[in-house]
Design a binder for these strands. Structure first.
Lengths: 242, 242
DNA sequence: TCCCCATCTTTACATCGTAAAGATCTGATA
DNA sequence: TATCAGATCTTTACGATGTAAAGATGGGGA
């Protein structure tokens, strides 16, 4: 699927530094008469670039996700993305917005599919972790990158929706209305705890830092089982909720 | 303090591409007779580079922490670090090890200073977050970088000590012995929860993602207060520990 | 029909990581 | 003590990246 990148860019005109200019006859490239050639105007380059970025991210990871790699994957010049996203921060931010939308959709549908209250309470964090495991690169873009511009409307909106979904889920579980503009200390603490717990678990899991714990647990314990235990095991009797 | 970097590197020999070679007479630079000049052999370059890296990190953040910047800060050629650390991953890994040692020391001394059991239980997570807030760059190196080589003994050891300290603290709180090589599901869940909670809280805090919550809490609530509430507030009555 | 401007390409440049070769010093050995 | 192998540091070089600026192209309104 469009894996024909790397075809040029590096081999074509990488170093025309000291060649005599106008030396190569250079065929009248891309005459519109040759219909098979891509037209000069892509038409939907922005979306194509975002999809290309997603492919590059899945294939080569965060380190491989560069502006030029995305342009190659999309089959355009390396400077084309600039016009649509400004700079790398712009591209990453828009890609993160895409990720947040996927992320929110996954959690919403998981919650909808749950039946019992217990399932419903666990469905969201499970879907959270499952998404991150299925799309570690995307999760990295969303939560690990420092080059994000949260003032971009699309990103701000999608990330906000994610938080709203969390707060709402907490409200449902606690069977109370959670106001939009004011929280009690108790509510804030519970929301922060839920988010921090699941986010922290996910980061540690993706970084392989839970391997130690998993290896010491009963044979064959999965990360999901550990997550569920973490969420359901009661806190110790005496001391605080640690 | 050694802020005289950027003095050359870019202006000196950046583009000698097509200049006639051996054009500049080039004075016999660095004769050993001039005692004030730094000797050819630095003597303790490795440690100097690590300290320089720490300064660069605090000054310019994670994005500014490059091999060449560290070399400039230390006043050596840009390729000097290679000999001591191999590559960027090596430098980052050793720096992360330094960070883990600082980190562990901060938590240990905070625990030692605590008196009551409640204080003791809260001292560790508070010191955890406090360190991250005081040294966000270092915390980023330790937990946010993907270019870390955990097989390096110094890093592995320091990170291991951090985990051992956590497990030990949990054992003290629960007043039970935590085995080195086997965990019950309950123990694993509690340890994972503690770590995930504090780590997740820290990441969200450093990323500014708790601003929303903090702004909605009673006027003037600090992150530390939210952390304490998060750790001490009881879980909801009916559903699981969310 | 013509021209403005959005879109895309070319070209250029500073910076980065890394490799390889040269320069310099240290310390062990004879 | 003289020497020399190896450790340490510098120079030089190269490919890759992000970004700026100028040129090419074509769509759509005047």
């Amino acid at each position: 699927m469009a894996k024909t990148h790397t075809k040029s860019e590096t081999s074509r005109g990488s170093r025309p530094r000291s060649t005599t200019p106008a030396a190569a006859p250079r065929p009248p490239r891309r005459t519109r008469s040759a219909k098979t050639e891509t037209p000069y105007h892509h038409g939907a380059l922005r979306e194509a670039l975002l999809q290309a970025a997603e492919r590059v991210l899945e294939r080569d990871g965060l380190a491989g996700l560069t502006l030029r790699a995305v342009a190659r994957e999309a089959g355009v010049s390396h400077a084309a993305p600039t016009h649509h996203f400004g700079d790398l921060t712009g591209l990453l931010s828009e890609l993160a917005a895409v990720g947040f939308r996927q992320f929110n959709a996954a959690m919403t549908s998981a919650c909808d599919a749950a039946a019992t209250p217990l399932e419903k309470a666990l469905a969201r964090p499970k879907a959270y972790v499952a998404y991150a495991q299925a799309h570690p690169g995307m999760y990295g873009i969303m939560f690990r990158t420092e080059r994000l511009d949260h003032s971009r409307p699309s990103l701000h909106e999608a990330a906000e929706a994610s938080f709203a979904g969390l707060a709402n889920a907490i409200g449902v579980i606690r069977q109370e209305q959670i106001s939009e503009d004011a929280l009690t200390m108790n509510q804030g603490a519970v929301i922060a705890r839920a988010w921090a717990m699941v986010h922290g678990f996910t980061m540690l899991l993706l970084d392989g830092r839970l391997e130690d714990i998993l290896a010491r647990l009963p044979e064959g314990t999965t990360a999901e089982q550990l997550l569920e235990a973490m969420l359901t095991v009661p806190v110790a009797a005496k001391p605080p909720a640690i």
